[in-house]
Amino acid sequence: MNKSGQISTPELWAPPGLWRRLEGPLAHLFLLLCTLTTVLTTISIVVILSVQSAQFFRVSGISPIRFLTGTDVEAPHFGILPLIWGTFMIALGSSVIALPVGLLSAIYLSEYAPRKVRAVLKPSLELLAGIPTIVYGFLALQLVTPGLRLLLNPFGLDVEQFNALSACIVVGVMVIPMVSSLSEDVLSAVPQGLREAGYGLGATKFEVSTRIVLPAALSGVFASFILALSRAVGETMAVVLAAGRVPSITLNPLVSIETMTAYIVAVVGGEEAPGSPTSLSLFAVAMVLFIVTLSMNIVSRIVLARYREAYV
């Protein structure tokens, strides 16, 4: 037994019977293979995306720089800057909703809520997180866009059928449970002694929550923010349904935009022959998407690891 409670001594004792001697090593082998599946998955993703992206750059004759900076998404040009713009517009727009609401609800759950209320709220947040994204997309079309029209048309603002704002709203709502549950974990992990010290000095609950607990858990909260952003970047169905497919670099949230994920869905639905530049382009776009979300995940883990060192 080592510190972490694991069994790390070699097996000196062999049970009687051939099968009982064999089943241990066989099980060990099976379990190892299971574990290696995950490594293989990562390797296949990386290999497939890089091989096919290389193929795309070769077939289409577009340089990676022009691919990333070009502003015309259409077939012979393949400049995906509008897609990257659209993706980050959705991600940032949705975090305007998700981050404050998620953080406030995390503070409520960890600092204010009585234990019984919390026992009910946490599972219902999980339930909310389990609702398929297609439902949110449908909600954007059915409820949010008509609502926005009702609200903004009297001011002379024209809201398109597909628009970035409704996608931002539903994606924001969608990632609230994630921000809230991850932030709540780190807020609850702040040692009770810090809070008691604050109360001892005459701070109110509000002051303890915002000036002691929150700063103490700040890096963990940031980590959850980054994860939520990365989730919004990778979000597909809600954005496809709500934001439409008109690639554009604009700051106007009331018009249609196209994200990287929506582009991939459009290419797959477009029945291009496999091997054509257009059908290969989805691998290059997916590569960009993969790199962006992976780096966000890694950054969030680094931030979180730093936090853990401080208290545990």
Partner: peptide, 27 residues
């Protein structure tokens, strides 16, 4: 045993959980 192999696999699993689902579709 806790060590480099476990750390690598564990990080890898956490990263895989964050890969957008559409990338799995492409895979």
């Amino acid at each position: 045993r806790p060590g480099r192999f476990k750390a690598v696999v564990q990080t890898n699993i956490a990263n895989l959980a964050g890969v957008p689902s559409i990338v799995y579709g492409i895979l």
